[in-house]
């Protein structure tokens, strides 16, 4: 199968690559770009571990072909920390024990990122609704919701 040239901006860096049409965005990010924060859990859109932002929208990277991201801006959990400093969201997950094994965490944080960009002060119910798209097997979710709530606080403190 012929390779298709694409250029994708991931976490602010532009990459030009040639990919097979069937190459899933998740594999493109992990293997071709060596960005390992995006995890693969189910490969059929059920678990949400591979969630990334494409053009600002949370999507399952296991249900998106890399060619579809051609010309798009993609953000992954690899890019959350800036200059070695954890983002408020990461900081909040750390403080509130929003993770245990860490496998779902990137996806959870990307879903939360989308939410917080659209809505700087989400209610608890809105947070619950947002993270309900993703599976976590360790935490029982409570700490994840608390982490996002804490991130809201940290971001508001940071904005002052």
């Amino acid at each position: 199968m012929a390779l298709i040239p694409i250029n994708v901006t991931v976490n602010g860096t532009r990459f030009e690559r040639a990919v097979e049409p069937r190459r899933l965005l998740a594999d493109f990010l992990r293997e071709d770009l060596d960005l390992k924060a995006t995890h693969i859990g189910c490969e059929h859109g059920v678990c949400g571990a591979c969630t990334v932002l494409v053009a600002g929208e949370a999507v399952r990277s296991c249900l998106t072909f890399a060619v579809q991201a051609d010309g798009c801006e993609v953000r992954t959990a690899d890019g959350l920390a800036q200059a070695g400093k954890l983002s408020p969201l990461q900081q909040a997950f750390w403080e509130k024990h929003g993770l245990q094994c860490g496998y779902c965490t990137s996806g959870m944080m990307m879903v939360a990122s989308e939410l917080l960009e659209r809505n700087a002060r989400p209610t608890k119910a809105e947070i619950e609704e947002a993270v309900s798209s993703n599976l976590c097997r360790c935490t029982g979710y409570y700490n994840i919701v608390e982490s996002v709530q804490r991130a809201v606080e940290l971001m508001q403190e940071g904005a002052k």
């Binding site: 049409p21 899933l24 059929h44 859109g45 296991c62 249900l63 072909f65 060619v67 579809q68």
Partner: peptide
Amino acid sequence: GGQSLVPMMNLRLVKPAVLIDIN
């Protein structure tokens, strides 16, 4: 959107020769 088609492809339940991406 691919939210049903791509899972079926990943499971190799459908194997289209050509995908026409209308996005």
